[in-house]
């Protein structure tokens, strides 16, 4: 079976800073791959190459076996890749409905179909079970968790093949975090492939099938979650070396 996503030998330099060097990673349908690493390791940069926010200096991206060029966010969306950014990427002055559909509004002729968008947004937000009193106030008036839910709803609504979640639960309480966990499991069962970035080792260990650890812009190693202990993963993150017997291609 072809992987859903295969990124090969991706390198990217910001001025004098080699943010990614020769990074390769892949993702299969119905799989959750956890991306781990210290702050500044290059996790967000890597997934931003996949979501079209950055262009890599070199390397290849394959979607379901065929090579694709991802030059901008539209390209990425077209290949069925949805992203929840660490920075949330919401337009604060717009309401929840506008943010869920931003860039992909439903229209009647040339006119925005606000009613349909509000109904659909409410459905997908209900699924996430976070209380949002009004969908029609600017999201700047919302709590961090509510805003995060809007960002998640935005990615979930468009029925992605591949979902990238960069710290999706950073602002969520324990109950909402659990809901997001359930959501990840449900999407996984539907065959969606998920890249999950989080600093919460427990969360990632619970949800991921494989773990890829990065350090200083390089991949330290990729391991099957069930083969490693938490201490071994910590060792990979901090020391940057993979125990030989665990390495997995």
């Amino acid at each position: 079976m072809n992987p859903l996503i295969e990124m090969k030998n991706i390198s990217l330099r910001f001025g004098g800073n080699q943010a990614l060097s020769d990074v390769s990673i892949n993702l299969y349908p119905g799989e959750v791959v956890g991306l781990l690493g210290h702050n500044g390791a290059g996790k967000s940069t890597l997934i931003k190459v996949l979501s079209g926010a950055y262009k890599s200096d070199s390397g290849q991206i394959f979607v379901e076996g065929s090579e694709v060029k991802i030059n901008n966010p539209q390209d990425s969306q077209r290949h069925g890749i949805e992203t929840i950014y660490q920075s949330l990427a919401l337009a604060d002055n717009l309401d929840a409905v506008a943010n869920v559909f931003l860039g992909r509004e439903k229209i009647n002729g040339v006119v925005l179909d606000e009613d349909t968008m509000e109904i659909e947004a409410r459905k997908v937000l209900d699924r996430l079970r976070v209380k949002i009193p009004s969908l029609r106030v600017p999201v700047s008036n919302m709590s961090g968790g509510q805003r995060q839910t809007v960002a998640i709803a935005r990615a979930v609504y468009f029925k992605a093949k591949v979902l990238i979640m960069d710290e999706p639960t950073a602002a969520l309480g324990p109950e909402e975090t659990q809901k997001v966990g359930e959501l990840i499991k449900a999407l996984k069962a539907e065959g969606v492939g998920i890249f999950l970035i989080s600093h919460d080792l427990h969360d990632v260990a619970d949800l991921s099938d494989r773990l890829t650890v990065m350090k200083n812009g390089r991949v330290v190693g990729t391991v099957n979650t069930k083969d490693v202990s938490e201490d071994e993963v910590l060792g990979m993150i901090i020391a940057g070396t993979t125990p030989k017997h665990l390495a997995n291609k």
């Binding site: 926010a53 966010p73 992203t83 990427a89």
Partner: peptide
């Protein structure tokens, strides 16, 4: 949010 607009395509 110009960045969000860009990322939204």
């Amino acid at each position: 949010n110009p960045e969000a607009a860009l990322l939204a395509g």
